[in-house]
């Protein structure tokens, strides 16, 4: 099978890669581009560890083909912070101890950013349903939800 040439943008950076037609975006990110911050937990779209944004929309990169990235804007966890400082969401996850092992954390941070861009003032219930696609086995979610609520306050400028 001939590989396909794909031109895309990842975290604002113009990027080209070659991939098999059946290769997932997750595999491309991790294996071709060495962007291993995006994690694989299930490969079936159930756990959210591979969450990225594609043209601003939250997707599981294990359910997207690499070739679909052609001409798209992809956002991964590596692009959340600017070069100097952590993003508010990242700071709040640390402050609230919203991670234990940390394998779900990149996906949750990407999802949280997408949530708060869509809905800057979510209720606890809205957060719980929006993040229901991001599994965490360590924390029981309590501290994650608090970190997201606190991030929302700061990002709205209420704090």
């Amino acid at each position: 099978m001939a590989k396909t040439h794909v031109t895309t943008s990842i975290n604002g950076e113009a990027t080209e890669f070659l991939c098999e037609p059946n290769e997932t975006l997750l595999a491309v990110l991790r294996n071709e581009l060495q962007l291993t911050g995006t994690k694989e937990g299930c490969g079936s779209g159930d756990c959210g560890a591979c969450s990225v944004t594609m043209n601003g929309r939250l997707v599981c990169s294990c359910l997207v083909l690499g070739v679909e990235a052609e001409g798209a804007e992809i956002g991964t966890v590596e692009g959340i912070s600017n070069k100097e400082n952590l993003h508010v969401i990242q700071e709040k996850f640390l402050e609230h101890a919203a991670l234990q092992c940390g394998i779900c954390t990149p996906g949750l941070i990407v999802s949280t950013k997408a949530l708060l861009e869509e809905n800057p003032d979510p209720t606890e219930e809205e957060i719980r349903y929006y993040l229901a696609g991001n599994l965490c086995r360590c924390t029981g979610y309590d501290k994650i939800i608090r970190a997201v609520m606190d991030s929302a306050v700061v990002m709205r400028g209420d704090a």
């Binding site: 962007l35 995006t38 912070s81 952590l86 990242q90 940390g102």
Partner: peptide
């Protein structure tokens, strides 16, 4: 703040499948 926190929230932490 946990000392390994920065790596964990930025995607830099290397887990089992992350070494090539």
């Amino acid at each position: 703040i946990r000392p390994d926190g920065f790596d964990k929230v930025t995607g830099r932490a290397d887990f089992g499948a992350d070494l090539s």
